[in-house]
Amino acid sequence: MDLKVVDMNRTYAEAILNWSYEEPYDFYNSELSEDGIKEFLNSSYYAVVDHHEELIGFFCTGESAQVPFGVHYGAYTPGFIDVGLGMRPDLTGKGLGYPFLSFVLEFFKNQAPFRLTVAAFNERAARLYFKLGFRKETEFTFGNIVFMTMIKKADPNH
């Protein structure tokens, strides 16, 4: 995948908010709203495009990458780069997650340790994260959804 990171803009934010995932991943569907657009434009979100400038996915960092309720469970201790990400629905489940997430992590120039939060039912994403060296750290429940944080320590070879 020939990818590059670009600044998030309104066009990309609207496209992402209109993405529609199939069950059970429809949990990640959003609603197009001004609040949603403002969230994507809060300077912690980045768009990922291919060599044709086509939107492939996005990632965010910091509090935007955390599930707010997880703070009550102590899931977000200091010392980690929190990363959240999403890939265009028509590209998921096709083996593109590994190069996509590898590219996103490389963007940080090995500043690990990283932390991701994933809904526990999303076994496909969790498998990918394990494959890339993440390990389960904590688990917490919000509503009827179980979330887990996964961490990846710094690579001593870098």
Rank of each mutant, 00 (worst) to 15 (best):
F134K: 00
N144H: 13
R127M: 09
Y46F: 15
I81R: 00
Y21H: 02
A119M: 09
I37H: 07
Y21V: 03
Y46V: 03
K153L: 03
F121G: 10
A13P: 12
Q111H: 05
T138L: 05
D90K: 09
F134A: 02
I145G: 10
G86A: 14
Y98K: 14
A47M: 05
G79M: 02
P24M: 03
F134I: 04
Y73H: 15
K152H: 01
T92N: 09
L101P: 03
A154Q: 00
V83Y: 01
E23V: 06
S44R: 11
I56C: 11
G79N: 02
L17V: 06
Y73I: 04
V71H: 11
G70R: 05
L101V: 14
E123T: 13
M1S: 14
H52G: 07
N18A: 10
K131L: 10
H72C: 07
G86Y: 06
Y73T: 03
F69M: 12
T149P: 10
Y21L: 04
D2T: 14
Q111W: 00
T77I: 08
I81L: 00
N18S: 14
K109T: 08
F80S: 01
L85A: 11
A126S: 11
G95N: 08
L17H: 04
E34V: 11
K131I: 04
F147A: 05
E23Q: 11
L3M: 14
D50N: 15
G62P: 01
L55H: 13
V48E: 09
K136Q: 11
E34Q: 13
F103G: 12
F142S: 12
Y98G: 07
W19F: 09
D2R: 13
F59D: 11
L128A: 10
A126I: 15
M1N: 08
G57C: 09
T141M: 13
M8V: 11
F69H: 12
A13I: 09
V5G: 06
V118D: 02
Y46I: 01
T77S: 04
P68I: 09
A126K: 13
G62M: 07
G95T: 07
I37P: 15
L3R: 05
Y46P: 00
N9Y: 06
S64Q: 11
L85W: 12
N122L: 03
H52Q: 15
N157L: 05
L116I: 12
T149H: 10
F147V: 03
Y28W: 02
R88Y: 11
F147E: 05
F107C: 04
V71F: 04
E53P: 02
L55E: 14
A120K: 15
N122I: 01
F58W: 15
K152A: 02
A154P: 00
P99Q: 04
M8L: 09
I81A: 00
E39K: 12
N110W: 00
L85C: 10
Y129I: 01
G79K: 04
F130L: 10
L3A: 08
E22T: 09
N18T: 13
L116E: 02
M150S: 07
G95Q: 05
T92F: 03
M150C: 04
F142T: 13
P99M: 06
P89K: 02
T141K: 15
T77E: 05
A75V: 04
P156D: 07
H51N: 15
G74M: 04
L101K: 01
D90W: 08
F103I: 08
F100R: 10
V146T: 15
K153Y: 00
E54V: 08
